[in-house]
């Protein structure tokens, strides 16, 4: 039994320390996801709190059939969908998160050219349509596996694969256009 499963079992038994440790393990991921999707810190923070409150309330029904990460991303997905419907943000434009709120530390990119290409790519991702954009966020940015991503989005894996392939094709074709190459 891995560490998360043990913490989860303890939290279900009412251990608040284990629950705090679980918060420490997952809150960054959840916040980052909301931050990228929502475009501002306030909404992301608010949605993160809602997600964890729902998670604690529903912790009794968590049986460990999927990983805790998948489970809490599923909750976060529903929280995000509710928020998105309530706000009715059809033309949601997120900020350039990769320029404004990147954590301090060593850059993941090898050189300036790669960083420039990555920024262009992230910009194109934000222009994707909503189901594909969320799938890209979950699979690539959040690091969930295909099975976990499909579980969070409540769709078959084959559908997820199709969406991702389509999104990658769009990204590749748009990145090949001159305006992106000359930037």
């Amino acid at each position: 039994m891995d560490q998360v499963a043990q913490l989860c079992r303890r939290a279900k038994a009412g251990d608040a320390v284990a629950a705090s440790e679980m918060v420490s393990l997952f809150y960054e991921k959840v916040f980052s996801w909301f931050r990228r999707l929502c475009g501002n810190d306030e909404d992301a923070e608010d949605l993160t709190q809602k997600t964890f409150l729902k998670a604690w309330a529903a912790l009794g029904s968590y049986e460990g059939r999927s990983s805790f990460s998948t489970w809490i991303h599923g909750i976060a997905h529903h929280v995000y969908v509710d928020w998105w419907r309530r706000k009715n943000l059809a033309e949601l434009q997120t900020e350039a998160w990769w320029e404004r709120c990147v954590a301090e530390g060593p850059s993941p990119f090898e050189d300036a050219a790669e960083r420039e290409m990555a920024h262009q790519l992230y910009c194109l991702v934000e222009q994707l349509q909503e189901p594909a954009r969320e799938a890209v966020h979950l699979h690539y940015y959040q690091g969930l596996s295909l099975r976990e991503t499909a579980e969070v989005l409540d769709i078959p894996t084959i559908t997820l694969k199709y969406r991702l392939r389509e999104a990658l094709d769009v990204l590749r074709s748009q990145a090949a256009e001159p305006k992106f190459r000359t930037r």
């Binding site: 809150y27 916040f31 990147v102 954590a103 790519l121 940015y141």
Partner: peptide, 19 residues
């Protein structure tokens, strides 16, 4: 490149709030 997306800054005090 997508998998190399950088980590984001988390507002200070969020963890304590959640805990």
């Amino acid at each position: 490149l997508l998998r190399k997306a950088p980590r984001l800054k988390v507002p200070s005090g969020l963890r304590e709030k959640l805990q």
